[in-house]
Design a protein around this nucleic acid. Sequence first.
RNA 1: GGACGGCUAGCUCAGUUGGUUAGAGCGACUGGUUUACACCCAGUAGGUCACAGGUUCGAGUCCUGUGCCGUCCA
Length: 907
Amino acid sequence: MEKAYQPKDVEDRLYQSWEEEGSFRGTPDAGKPAYSIVIPPPNVTGVLTMGHVLNNTIQDILARRARQRGFSTLWLPGTDHAGIATQTKVEQQLRQQGKSKHDLGREGFIEHAKEWRDKHGGIILKQLRKLGCSCDWERTVHTLDPDYSKAVLEAFVRLFNNGYVYRGKRMVNWCPVSRTALSDEEVIMKPQSGKLYKVRYELADTPGEYLYVSTTRPETIMGDVALAIHPQDERWPALQGRKVRRPLQPAEIPIIADDAVEKDFGTGMLKITPAHDPLDFEIGQRHGLEIIDVFHEDGVLNELAGPEFAGLDRFEARKATVEKLREQGDLIDEEDHANNVGFSERADVPIEPRLSEQWFLRYPRVEEAKRAVSEGMIRYFPERWTKTYLHWLENIQDWCISRQLWWGHRIPVWYRKGAPRNDPNNWHVSVDGPEDPENWEQDEDVLDTWASSWLWPIATMGWPNPSAMKQQGLDYFYPTSALVTGPDIIFFWVARMIMAGLEFKGDPVDPKTTLSDEQIRQRIPFRDVYFTGIIRDAKGRKMSKSLGNSPDPLDLIEKYGADGLRHGIMSIAPKGQDIRFSEERIEQGRNFCNKLWNVSRFRQMADEQTRESSLEEIIGRMDPAHLNQDDHAILLRLIQTLDEVERLYEQYEFNSALHSIYRFFWNDLCDWYVENSKPRMRGGEGKETCLAVQDLCLRQVLLLLHPVTPFITEELWHVLGFSGGQSIQWANPGTGQELGGLLSQSGIKPDPVALDEMLAIRELVTSMRALKADRNLANNNRVEFSYLAEDGKSDVLSKHLGSVLSSVGAAALNRVAQAPAGMPALVTAFGSIYLDLASGVDVGAEKIRLSKELEALNKIISSIENKLGNTAFTGKAPPQVVEGARRQLADNLAKKQETEDALRSLS
RNA sequence: GGACGGCUAGCUCAGUUGGUUAGAGCGACUGGUUUACACCCAGUAGGUCACAGGUUCGAGUCCUGUGCCGUCCA
């Protein structure tokens, strides 16, 4: 074996063999329970980020654990066509060639985009392989695949037929860069510091008299169609029926009264611009006002804005209109003003409220979706996200699902040529289109990407095609076992998938019928949802391309190995908290792998012939008569660890589980057990048993670690001869109880007392080492110790004498009848220990040290005495707590006595 | 404005239903190549558990309020 673990020699080779053996294949198997996960599909053109590393490592851990435990496991991968994101990229690239999408036309553009996707897309799936992800690649799905697309259209048609889908002219969120409508969820509110302008409007019937209006958007004044005032405003009676002159694009506009006007904001007078503000639109509707849209779709002002402003973009137009108002003397005041502005999630520019004709969806199964989560049919980890989820559902707004893009699923609605489109009688809605296509034209828009990915758990398993569903095992693998995703897409994706599952899985149910709990259980897309934290950089900032603070995971794999990266990221991922990334943690992961490698190497050096060690064979090599206290202790710790890890994984406490394995492996096994094995391994009757105990521990550690660090554990599994020709992927670590049962069949019953003793002995060793270290005595400087103790303590100590001597680096530990004079001393649970120094002792320094010790003891003692002196405590606290305090007091008093003795012996 | 989360050692974080003297890793410092590992071993220092009240025999833990940081919703 190499001196240090070399991931590169191992990873690609093992991954390839796993794939070739079909280990990742998810096939329905009636003889086994099912475990399934669908990957949150990354953007087809995306590349691997640290967020993906975290998210997919967790999924891989779940999938690999399930395989080990005998589940027929499917981890289904795929990619998302990511409508806006991808189309933007392709358009950018076209622009670089001096072309626009219109040069290619719709068909040509889509062809081009597909080619581009096939060439540049899917990189991320290759990267996931490097990370070790055990996805069933043969089942990779893309949201624009023909079958998937059919499912998307089918869903639309069914929703339409059930009355959930409607077309309407509404105010929508418009992105002037992507030139499409967006859903509310795609708008990010950001606080902005802008200006509030006070503008005067001249009363038409009394020139020279003015009304004052505060506005943040002077560039829309040309679209004003009224001024509004609250009906309770005292000025109202005097203004009723009168008109003002619009200061830009002059025209006379009415003054109206409406309850929606905030009396206390600004001047209490609102300009009404129905084309450019949702509230103004509503007010305009109530009062039958005209709508004047002064913008083009790209945010450039149009001819209705007047010759002076037409052609300016909205930001320039703001400056220009302010300037013009100032020139005219109509700008009365401007002041700084902080407000929230909606930004487009993708293009990161302010969105425009815009009136347009769009398709909307009234969400199906909202009530059942609430129930599924609030009643625990779907469990959220951490649980607190249920509140966020329920709050959103309670305030749910209809979903604008049409996008003015070409890249996506084209809306399956056709309009009769030449007939008015707003009359549903002229619509044809179906998956395959009308039989006489020459008489129809299809809607130009495509569906929101999320209106395809909300079907991900069912449409990746063949829905709605019955034979595909059967073949792909929808009924076997659905509901999926767990979903692993970020809380940032709880509305975009998680909530919508739940509603889609409830609506579409199983036989159609009348919209008026509420689903029963039983139906909900069968229809939900997943049982558990694990929300990861967001990975931040060392300064706590979100990782992003623009900040350049996101390391490339592939570089990290190159440097530390995939296992190192996985171990590192999992060790710092507390449940659902944000995660601060630091490369040092990945380094630790690498170091951990190296430690595992080296302790295996050490094992190999002891006994190089090849073994084939099944669990039974290993246990069979143990001779119960040769088991010492350390053997008992480590076996007990192993049993504990198996159960603890299992329990923590059940709760999705990944970093705690890992920590538990770490503690057992590094602190208990390597630092203590293996170190103490060294003398035994020189020969003698305990050697075989000791090696067998090491084998058992190593074997179980490999099994527990395999989900986290799959490569190195598989490699060592074979190197150490545990495999019997079988991959570690199919070996179950089992429970502590199961292991205990097997041991007891071989006459091995680990003694619980040994564990307590071992812990106490370790404390003793630590103090003895410290006593040496204080005097700068090297570990291998074999000094002599004496000790003074009662018989009971002495017995325990003598059982562990070998360990103590070798761990401390001591030549002898001699029991004495009375305290030797003039030696540095240590008061421990096992009595007083004296360090025998041939050379002189710094008596002054010793006295200071022991006095400090005494001071600390006195503090502890008086605090316990206080407590015990308090009748409220002794009366009300549970007996075992009071008893514990008494024992503690006695121990510390004894320690105090011995410390005083030691001090005296120095003088 | 509302909701949620965080505030514990220099840093990153553990700390179960309240119960011994609040832990780990990293970093710092000291010493070290003993049959694996310097990607290692041994040891040391370092904490007013954000703040203020309250409940309790007992609070890092429960309650109320405040502050700061972050996220989401309006």
